[in-house]
């Protein structure tokens, strides 16, 4: 005990990073470095190395082979489809998220907690199950199957199914971020705008939207990353038709299973790049606008 105390205060004098009053509330120097080493090794083994592997494997046979992966028509079709799916799914969830958080955060009504729980539901559903439920609704043997077959409408194993499954898995992203943020901001500013004669829309565009813009951007960013990267749900509803219903992640799978590793990792590096950009912007937003993104100092 006394040893820990003296050791602690000694470290406080030597170590510039520790302010001296904090000396009894930290571990011995050797323990600290040991824990830092454990944490960093763990992060390196499980997170950093896989990321580096993607780029190393993609460039294993040089830039020529790397770039060749993108000149393939199937790869281009996959890129186009992924962009299309995100271009539909993200705005849909953006509008839904803003509407839902307006209703939930600005008003008091019964059943609110249940509503929030239901909106969160897709987060706790396995991606594969998320795809399965749409097969059960729109598949040829599904709920609307006979109707769809009769009218020659294809949803499953076609682009609409991929869009629907993507909307489902990214459904809670915007709403879950905005609800606590808008709840914390309250209704006083909107009430002031309305009292001064603004219309409801005017109050929303000039008062609410500027207040939530960073939180909105943050959630749209994460929503987009998931929409472009979704694999399990999309894989179930896509049917894997080359050039037609293969998104980028599915194209990665096909190339990998064909032992075309350079091309697989090249396409994967595109998605990894997207993830890195997402993380970078996300971190900048968190450092700069922490209070404008989430309610309270942090989540929870």
């Amino acid at each position: 005990m006394s040893e820990a105390l003296t050791q602690g205060s000694g470290a406080g004098v030597r170590d510039e990073t520790q302010r001296s009053p904090a000396s009894v509330v930290t571990e011995r120097r050797v323990v600290r470095w040991l824990l830092i080493a454990v944490a960093l090794t763990f992060l390196a083994l499980f997170l950093v190395l896989p990321l580096l592997t993607v780029f190393a494997q993609a460039l294993a046979k040089g830039w020529g082979a790397y770039l060749a992966a993108f000149s393939e028509p199937d790869a281009r079709a996959a890129i186009r489809l992924t962009l299309l799916v995100a271009a539909i799914a993200v705005p849909f969830n953006l509008v839904f998220g803003v509407a839902a958080s307006w209703a939930i955060a600005k008003f008091e009504f019964r059943g609110k907690n249940l509503l929030v729980t239901l909106i969160d539901l897709p987060f706790s559903v396995s991606p594969v199950v998320s795809g399965l439920i749409y097969v059960l609704v729109f598949g040829s043997r599904g709920l609307f199957g006979p109707f769809l077959v009769e009218h020659d409408i294809q949803i499953i194993f076609a682009v609409p199914g991929i869009v629907l499954a993507t909307i489902f898995v990214t459904f809670p992203f915007v709403a879950r971020q905005l609800i606590p943020l808008m709840q914390e901001q309250g209704t006083a500013e909107e009430e002031a705008a309305l009292t001064l004669g603004a219309s409801g829309w005017h109050a929303f565009w000039t008062v609410t939207l500027p207040n939530i813009r960073w939180g909105l951007l943050y959630s749209v960013l994460l929503c987009n990353a998931r929409a472009m990267g979704e694999f399990g749900a999309v894989s179930v509803v896509s049917g894997h038709i080359r050039g037609l219903t293969n998104t980028l992640p599915l194209h990665v799978e096909i190339l990998y299973n064909e032992y075309n590793f350079v091309a697989a990792f090249a396409v994967a590096s595109l998605l990894a790049g997207l993830a890195l950009v997402t993380l970078a912007v996300k971190s900048v937003l968190e450092w700069r606008y922490a209070d404008d993104i989430a309610a309270g100092a942090r989540r929870h």
């Binding site: 993607v54 599915l250 990665v252 990792f265 998605l271 990894a272």
Partner: peptide, 11 residues
């Protein structure tokens, strides 16, 4: 959270 699962899988 950000890396697509398929990319993580093959890596």
């Amino acid at each position: 959270f950000a890396l697509p699962t398929a990319v993580a899988g093959i890596a």
